[in-house]
Design a protein around this nucleic acid. Structure first.
Length: 286
DNA sequence: GTGTTTGTTATCAA
DNA sequence: CTTGATAACAAACA
């Protein structure tokens, strides 16, 4: 489940490797994943100018012929972008996807760069997408997202104003909404609420000042720490030799239903809030 | 065969 | 029109 830290990790690795590279060829194996139909043709010969991220959306900005284009990529639940060199041998593994070599049955798009780098877009569920748009259009799409939690714009004032404006909604629903805060997903919302000792069922307007501040700090801490650890994918099957991040070590509640709270020992509860599996400690969180 | 998984959007009620 | 909640959707696997 790639959220902000995972997508940011991908962005950094990609930016370091492919900025300035030229796309030699694009192979689309599953046409429904990409748009428009001219995707591969338009990108042939294009040069990568930058790799950006807003919320959970990646933008690979390229100069194609005489046009500035952007490849918008959303990994959704199970998408992967894996960069290898054509001479590499893949020893890592991602057991749930059965990845032992690339490309594999979940590889839907392949970018071949001059110089031998190969970028694979894999997606077991096929919910992710790649959309090629003029860069000016990409700007509009990216700017529609809310503030980045690690940016200075995500101030305590902004957060308190947001909670006041959405006072009637579940706090969890507010945190998940990408139009308000960009990049939080189910894992980091549950983890942030735990650290702030606030139950996910609380209404946004019911948080006391000390709770609002604690939650604001928790969001920045959790996201910052996870970015530092290259994110995580909650999945017990992820091979530790693969590219999975290490933040799973710090998870306190997500996916720990019926397991003891690491702080007080009470069993973690799993309920559904905002239509999502939700985990919290009934003792620590009020 | 069925429940489970989540980000996003459509839809509906108030 | 606004707000909030919920359904639906994408597809595959244990």
């Amino acid at each position: 489940m790639p959220e902000l830290p995972e997508v940011e990790t991908v962005r950094r690795d990609l930016a370091a490797r492919i900025t300035g590279s030229t796309i030699r060829e694009v192979e689309v194996r599953l046409p429904k994943i990409v748009s428009p139909k001219t995707f591969a043709r338009e990108l042939r010969g294009a040069r990568v100018l930058s790799v950006r991220r807003r919320a959970k959306l990646l933008s690979i900005d390229v100069q194609a012929k005489s046009k500035a284009l952007s490849i918008l990529i959303h990994l959704k639940m199970t998408g992967q972008l894996v960069l290898r060199h054509k001479h590499d041998i893949y020893f890592g593994g991602h057991p749930i996807l059965g990845v032992r070599s690339l490309p594999n049955k979940y590889t839907h798009v392949i970018f071949f760069f001059r110089g031998g780098d190969v970028l694979y877009f894999n997606d077991l569920r096929q919910f992710g997408y790649l959309k090629l748009v003029p860069t000016v259009e990409a700007e509009a799409i990216l700017s529609a997202y809310g503030v980045e939690p690690l940016a200075p714009q995500f101030s305590l004032d902004y957060f308190e104003g947001l909670l006041a404006k959405r006072k009637g909604a579940n706090i969890k629903a507010v945190l998940l909404n990408q139009q308000y805060i960009a990049g939080l997903g189910n894992i980091y919302v549950d983890e942030s609420l735990f650290r702030a000792r606030v139950r996910p069922t609380r209404r946004a307007g019911s948080l006391k000042p000390v709770e609002r501040k604690a939650l604001w700090k928790a969001i920045r801490q959790v996201i910052g720490l996870s970015v530092k650890h290259r994110g995580t994918s909650f999945n017990t099957y992820v091979d530790s030799d693969g590219r999975a991040g290490k933040f799973w070590r710090y998870l306190k509640v997500y996916g720990r239903g019926k397991e003891p709270c690491k702080v007080c020992g009470t069993d973690i509860v799993r309920i559904v809030v905002a239509g999502r599996g939700t985990h919290y400690c009934p003792s620590c969180q009020k």
